[in-house]
Design a protein around this nucleic acid. Structure first.
Lengths: 239, 239
DNA sequence: AAGTGGTCTAGACCACTGA
DNA sequence: CAGTGGTCTAGACCACTTG
């Protein structure tokens, strides 16, 4: 049984994954330590590490120092979502992008927005509403609050030309971002802005960002009917 | 300027990231090659590699052999979603999980389902409808088609006890999975099953899986009103 | 305190792919 | 075909975390 072939970390990953699939190591079981597997499979420990990181990133195993590597008890489907800035998304669909500022005013944040930021004391922020268009038709309605305290420069941005979405993504890195997806019934107001009917079902993407402990922005991106979020997973199984 | 400190790959990542944020390297720019950066920062090339892989995974840079490393032109928000099996999800909310099989019958797949699988020839599959309950109340309605050809064992599974969701996740690895999220208006049928009103807005998660070229299953998981998908991103900026 | 995963290094070779 | 990223190795040391 000579290890004549050079094993890549993907080979190693698949070898280990296979043992999990065929129940050599069942859910919750502890796997041999890296060094042991390296010896067994005939490669460097670093290579086993690389393979394990992939399995760990995919949610198949869990690793802890001293605790060892265990097969995860409950399988999860782990997907990666890419959310581009809205202009790019429109352009990638070969449509002409348009943008309209609907409203821009400083105001005291309502409790629901304070809750998004995990703030107890109500403060004043810049409230921005805007419409993103694709081929002249409404595409996404954006309802946003920006902290003037954390992002004072926002006052100097001409938001009637450039969307806050774009400016913030390009200029304000964040250290934490919370995301939420849910469905809402279109209100009269939504219907009017998005050129659709009340009670239509709309997908909403809500994003809240902080830099350190300081709130940056929270935004509800309300999509038009039929909008879909897509993603794809490449599993590490099969031929 | 002695490199007295031992640089970790995170230090290196942050150093490079910072140069991107402060526009030393702007969108689209080419970064120095790994070896050059390693020299510059005073670490091994492997360490730069590790840092770069992270930046690349986060969607901040793009790397190509021979092409070099470039700052991505359009920033994206990249999020990771974990979708557990429904039973786990319910239990993690400290609710009691329940399950009901609503329908199970072999039938010719409708064109929309064939489209999900990218199939042109209509075939027969097992059509399963089921209800997942949390604390006796409807939680998610599952509308699924399973390929009896790819997964003949499904015939022997007692689907009145065990959900197809769970059995498939535990027993059928896939090599590809397509995911879609969108909103729908509840139909009369949905309303009745989910104990809500017609026209409510519902979040739908649609998943389609294959093993190699062979279809395994496609499922629409229709949630109850108020359902939210959550995730969090840890950015690599700030203190 | 000891076991196990995480990281770093230095060097070699491989594998894409753009000029 | 040559430049650049990708991977592998062997060995050392570090840093968690649990028994």
């Amino acid at each position: 049984m000579a290890e004549s072939v050079r094993l890549s970390w993907k080979n190693v990953r698949d070898a280990i994954h296979e043992r999990i699939l065929d129940s050599t190591y069942g859910p919750g079981d502890k796997l041999p330590k890296d060094a042991r597997l390296a010896e067994e499979l005939g490669c460097a420990r670093t290579t086993v590490q690389r393979a394990m990181r992939d399995l760990s990133d995919s949610g198949i195993v869990e690793r802890r120092r001293k605790g060892g590597t265990h097969v995860r008890l409950d399988p999860v489907t782990r997907a990666t979502l890419d959310i581009p800035i809205t202009r790019r998304e429109v352009e990638q669909n070969d449509a002409v992008y348009g943008y309209q500022l609907v409203k821009k005013v400083s105001a005291k944040i309502p409790p629901s927005i304070a809750a998004n930021f995990e703030l107890s004391t109500p403060t004043t922020m810049l409230h921005i509403e805007a419409l993103h268009l694709a081929d002249q038709r409404p595409y996404i309605y954006e309802d946003r609050w920006v902290s003037e305290h954390t992002v004072p420069e926002i006052a100097d941005v001409d938001l009637s030309t450039e969307s806050a979405n774009e400016w913030l993504v390009r200029n304000r890195p964040y250290s934490r971002c919370d995301l939420r997806f849910f469905a809402i019934k279109a209100s009269e107001y939504h219907a009017k802005l998005l050129d659709t009917s009340p009670n239509e079902a709309l997908l909403v993407m809500e994003r809240t960002t902080w830099i350190g402990k300081n709130p940056i922005t929270t935004v509800k991106a309300v999509s038009t009917p039929g909008y879909q979020l897509l993603t794809q997973i490449q599993g590490s199984a099969g031929p």
